[in-house]
Design a protein around this nucleic acid. Structure first.
Lengths: 351, 351
DNA sequence: AATTTCTTGAGGTGCGTTACTCATCAATAG
DNA sequence: CTATTGATGAGTAACGCACCTCAAGAAATT
């Protein structure tokens, strides 16, 4: 069980240490046949470089920037908190995670933030990318400069980002639709929809997924036109209140985006919270409590901790040129009922 | 942004390198006041040892043994596969994960396997612990010998195991109960129950959770007496077939344990698959397909990949004497409908 | 044949810790 | 006053790899 070192590789390949080093680190000046000899030796010996020694010698440093929207959004706050927590924990692992709050509605500012980054200050970027063309362009340019970029939560499929860490929002919407369909009695009824903005890709995807399922499998249910509340609690409260007033026969409510607090308040005030099946997104102290109180009936969520850790793993792999284990990086669409809530609502303690 | 090394600590503490080393590694022969001086220097400089250098110098090796039941259980096979996959990946991280299949029904054999381990051959053990007193005793003895032990999937709360990696099965049962209650129409009906054995702690917990929810929130539903099929497909098929025959008014089915394949077959054969709400556990190729075909209506699951990774992290932390980040190690109770299934049914590829 | 270019060997240094040994020096006990 | 113990300094050899230099032989070019 002794470790295989470059010495062993050199010996069995019949070359010198220097040559092995040249091959292993892709340095020039080695004949093709020699390269193959070395590679064969590596394979037969199953040589793996010692990450400790390599890391030490390389003085490797992983400097990652996380751009996460600020603002009063509980989910983004969770993301930020998780990232900050890991920034602490991982500083001993030669990883410097820098969390930079961004204004998700100001594309130029975000693009500007991305524009000043390059490989001299940063080895990888994870960004919750607002869907502006200038942001997409900035991502592409960053990649050209050799900085790997992963998109977080919200994807930019047309950009050259190396990886997307997040959930399939169409599937999430389908899941919401099925829960609504199955929780509601099998009789004609209306379902009210509230979104942040259908201009946002994730919201549009969820909407499409939900609609597809309802139309296909629950044709007795009627989806009302989606109202846009910009993920704002006050606006959502107002919207839901009005929807409930205008439609006494609304039996279901799906909040596609954030701002559940407003919807919860309106539903509570209406006195119809028990009768209306309400499905929302993201686990927060508010949605947890609403689930416990039977105001919310189900929450579709993604785990911010998993997402941050996955993003870090992926960025590290990209920096190292290591392969990404797809199965490990798949973010699940979590379904929470009142019974399978995690024990503590605050995901992370300040330890 | 320069790295702080022990040299810096030694300098600002006004002591020698050797003394810093003694303090940092808890070696004897240092006066209390000196220890404090060093510690203060560490704090003010915010010194963190370089894991690369430390790992290299220490020639640290993490040898973990995973004892996982063999036999034709898809979930255990997944666990085994995940562990094996990580054994490969992590060998470069100086971790040697050894997977040892055990016979979960032979307590003495398992206890014997545990008995021959000690700190000279193994730095940590994760075991899917069969609920035999001799196994519990063996775990306790292993810990006494200085080998940290975590229980996996199935807990031994009364043993001295350092940690449990798995889900809260009462909550899982509650979740199943609520899904049944909400998916079924609000009218009197019977729910059939199949378990592996109510002598198994996890199964008993799930049963209790399900019963509690049904009785409290869905009193119009009647839970039939749980039949025990020993997680065996043939037996389960037989059981379900008989249950459906004997009770034409059965509207729901909850398979508490493994052996979904048998239940699925029986349900399919009965021609009542579409009408009966069927909730089961664990995501396998069979349950995935049954969900897609509307035979299964919901699957409660735990992610074997998460569990293996969590166990490894916990064992590593225990070996290092490092703290465990509870929030990160909490295993979620996953709910799968046909819409939020992971893309590929086989969780891991052979790369 | 002379010259240039390519390829390889030999060797060294540094990375930050760990885990030693050996030598001091002081305080304390006998 | 000496022997003993305790606390500390000083130094060093790994650990395995990355990266660099210098030199020399081989091959290709002119």
């Amino acid at each position: 069980m002794k470790r295989v070192t470059i010495h062993d590789v050199a010996e069995t390949a019949g070359v010198s240490l220097a040559t092995v080093d040249r091959v292993l680190n892709g340095r020039p000046g080695v004949r093709k046949t020699t390269i193959e000899k070395v590679q064969k030796a590596v394979d037969t010996l199953n040589y793996k470089p010692d990450i400790f020694a390599a890391g030490l010698a390389k003085k490797r440093l992983y400097r990652f920037h996380f751009l996460i929207p600020n603002g009063p959004n509980a989910f983004m706050e969770d993301l930020t908190r998780e990232a900050a927590t890991h920034a602490q924990t991982l500083s001993s692992d030669r990883m410097h995670v820098h969390v930079e709050p961004i204004d998700a509605f100001d594309g130029h500012r975000v693009a500007g933030t991305l524009a000043i980054l390059d490989s001299s200050v940063c080895d990888g970027v994870a960004v919750v990318a607002p869907a502006f063309p200038e942001v997409r362009a900035a991502i592409d340019r960053l990649q050209d400069r050799g900085v790997p970029v992963v998109t977080l939560v919200s994807d930019h499929p047309s950009s050259t980002r190396q990886h997307f860490v997040g959930i399939d929002n169409v599937a999430a919407g389908r899941t919401a639709g099925r829960l609504l369909g199955r929780f509601l009695p099998r009789q004609p009824a209306k379902i009210a929809l509230v979104a942040g903005s259908l201009g946002l890709r994730d919201h549009a995807d969820r909407y499409a997924g939900c609609r597809a399922v309802i139309e296909a499998d629950f044709p007795h249910l009627e989806l009302l036109k989606a109202r846009e509340g910009r993920d704002d609690n006050a606006r959502n409260q107002d919207l839901v209140q009005r929807l409930l007033n205008d439609h006494p026969d609304v039996a279901g409510l799906y909040n596609i985006g954030a701002g559940n607090r407003g919807a919860i308040a309106a539903l509570k005030a209406s006195g119809r919270a028990d009768d209306i099946v309400f499905v929302g997104h993201e686990l927060t102290p508010y949605t947890s409590q609403a689930l416990r109180k039977n105001i919310l009936d189900a929450v579709i969520a993604q785990d911010p901790g998993h997402e941050i850790r996955s993003a870090i793993r992926v960025l590290k792999a990209l920096s190292d040129g290591a392969p990404i284990i797809e199965g490990q990086e798949r973010i699940g669409i979590d379904v929470f009922l009142k019974d399978n809530l995690p024990e503590s609502p605050d995901v992370t303690k300040s330890t």
